[in-house]
Amino acid sequence: MNLRTRKIFSQTITYILIGIALIFTLFPIYWMLLTSFQPSDELMQSPPRFITSRPTLEHWRFAIENKWRYFINSLIISSSATAIAILVGSLSGYAFARYRVGGDTLPFWILSLKFFPPIAAAVPFFLMMNRLHLLDTHIAVIIPHLIITIPFAVWMIKGFVAEVPRELEEAAMIDGCSHLGVIRRVTLPLIAPGIVVTALFCFIWSWNDFLFALILTRSHAMTLPVAIAGMREAHGLMWGAVSATAAMATLPVLLMAIVLQKYIVRGLALGAVK
């Protein structure tokens, strides 16, 4: 084999393998979407159908009419948990990056909370919310979600602030800006994209949580993932309706993932790699 054919050969292998990876990645998502648009009598047929000739919106109508309030609950809980995390996380993220408050120990302790098992906190939170008569309220879920969102926000914002050269702030200070003015006019605009990225991630982590919402809500404040898990028992084989609801839960996350695509790896690796 000469060099040229070898190159073509290796390119072909690359494309084949990438193609297989794409099929494996996309097929489950396609299958869920397909199920959500298939008329009920076409579902769970043997052999399965890989395309539908009679697309229907009946399952989506069912999902929107019956599960909309859980969508709204998820929205309220995730936005609140995100807003609080960004607010306190910007302050402490800045302080950790610029003044090294608490040395390495404090930020690292906060980072370690990213691996804190929700099941361990769920038990005491259940008892506390029960005693405070807060079970099945939005607050009952927002508070434990702060365990998920705050450590992430602090750590990410700390990383983004550290990327802003200190000299920029010092130059503005020499020009007569107050310290707070420097933060507002120089640092904040520079890290604004980073804050948006952090907020979107916080929203997704809170949106995707299942355990806290499962234990701390019953019906009134139930989130969409809990509603999806509950449909299994209540409706037996309503595959179309569950698919449409599941797709409805996936949609916001997918839209955000498109915005985040350059940052996904950095966000999931907690900034360990860029």
């Binding site: 990645t25 995707n208 299942f210 996936t250 996904i264």
Partner: peptide, 8 residues
Amino acid sequence: PMMITPVV
């Protein structure tokens, strides 16, 4: 895939 809700 890693962004999709685990319940889903």
